[in-house]
Nucleic acid binder design. Structure first.
Lengths: 227, 227
DNA sequence: CATTCAAAACTGCAATAGCAGATGCCCGGC
DNA sequence: GCCGGGCATCTGCTATTGCAGTTTTGAATG
């Protein structure tokens, strides 16, 4: 731990959620934006001091990150940010694709009319952002679409897993500084996914979602996604 | 917390691993074997007292279980064993199928000759147990095969996720008290998976593994796996 | 200058204590 | 007999403290 990265400035305490959650988000942010570099040591005490908390919430956050593969811990030695080459990033993208597919499958099985309406709204937001060429809000709208879709499945394992995998996506895109991801094609794919869900066709929903996620991945990692 | 279930007898302390890991395994065992019934309250203090530890390791174990969906926590109220109907169990089985498929894909890409040899050994063990009709060791050998396959991918997210999902499989099989799962067919499917991995065919490996896991699931949940 | 070994500094890890919020119980009123 | 409010209890949650194992450092020795 050299000088305190910006991800480790003190934490606002006026929160009702467990501190470990805030610490977790801070650490994820630092790992994603690179201020906590791969291989860098993550000392419970140092982080706690920098964030103005005690060691325990930090410890819980590190455990969670360890379970998600973003942090590696040697039993009595310490934790460090996991080293990730493009192969690992592409791997995580593949896993994300299959989990997104599973989420779409579940959504097609269980979506209520309200759920479908919400997805329509998100899709409209994406369409607007695409027409205006507003890539920042397009990205947010895209994430909102996926998040809403995950919520339909109402499966805690899927929701948490996909949230964790999103970090890898951010890392990958930041590292290869991609890339518009062909917004119009992505829009069309989202529409097709939604249509499959509305048609209560789990098999098609999964297939479309998986292909969409994988194609989006292949924009960032053309090398590792051949075949 | 009424009377202490057998899963909550005191913990042996002569361990070098973090206590939270031991607590986690105990709680998983209790949830799987039903001694910690669905909906039952899980008080940090009570569990800690019963296990002879402090509250902190228990808390970490509960957080992990929460991330895996086995436990539900209301922010300042408390944790309880998640309620799981057959639909949820079948859902988790579907997710397990796609993750097992992803693991097989990775294995086909990265397996070393030593890895293939280890898988061969596990498969032989399964073959022996099948011929002798020894269902107990067959089950262990089956798990050993899958565990070895997961390890090949060397992906912490997959390894941890699949380990967590195994609990759901145990719960499901215990609840429907299935079922020999047609050992010979399972054996043939494992052999086909191994062949695909050895042939470096990720697509086939994933497809075979997914079909295998799903078919195995459909034995326990014929209702929820139609279509 | 390189090596080694011991001590100091640091680390994960667990236990204890205390606080604030949530739960449940009991008692008084309708 | 049923309902509601206040108090006791219990809960999650965080901080503080202390211990044991690890890593690093630095000096003495070859």
């Amino acid at each position: 731990m050299t000088l305190a990265p910006s991800a480790l400035r003190p934490l606002a305490t006026d929160d009702i959620r467990p501190l470990a959650d805030s610490v977790y988000e801070r650490l994820v942010g630092g790992i994603v934006d690179g201020s906590l570099p791969p291989g860098g040591k993550l000392s419970e005490r140092s982080i706690a001091a920098a964030l103005g908390t005690s060691a325990q919430p930090v410890r819980e956050a590190l455990r969670r990150l360890e379970g998600e593969g973003l942090v590696e811990t040697r039993p009595r030695s310490g934790s460090s940010v996991a080293l990730m080459d493009t192969r690992r990033l592409a791997e995580m993208g593949r896993i994300r694709a299959v989990l997104e597919g599973a989420a779409a499958d579940l959504a097609a099985r269980h979506a209520t009319p309200e759920d479908l309406q919400r997805l329509e709204q998100r899709l409209d937001a994406m369409r607007d952002a695409t027409e205006y060429g507003d890539t920042a809000t397009l990205r947010l709208a895209n994430e909102a679409f996926h998040t809403a879709l995950h919520a339909i499945g109402d499966n805690p394992f899927l929701i948490r897993g996909l949230q964790a995998l999103r970090a890898y996506d951010h890392i990958g895109r930041a590292r290869v500084l991609a890339s518009d991801d062909q917004p119009r094609q992505a829009l069309a794919e989202h529409a097709a996914i939604l249509a499959a869900i509305a048609a209560r066709d789990p098999e098609a929903a999964e297939r479309q979602m998986r292909a969409h996620t994988f194609r989006s991945l292949s924009v960032a990692f053309p090398e590792e996604t051949r075949g």
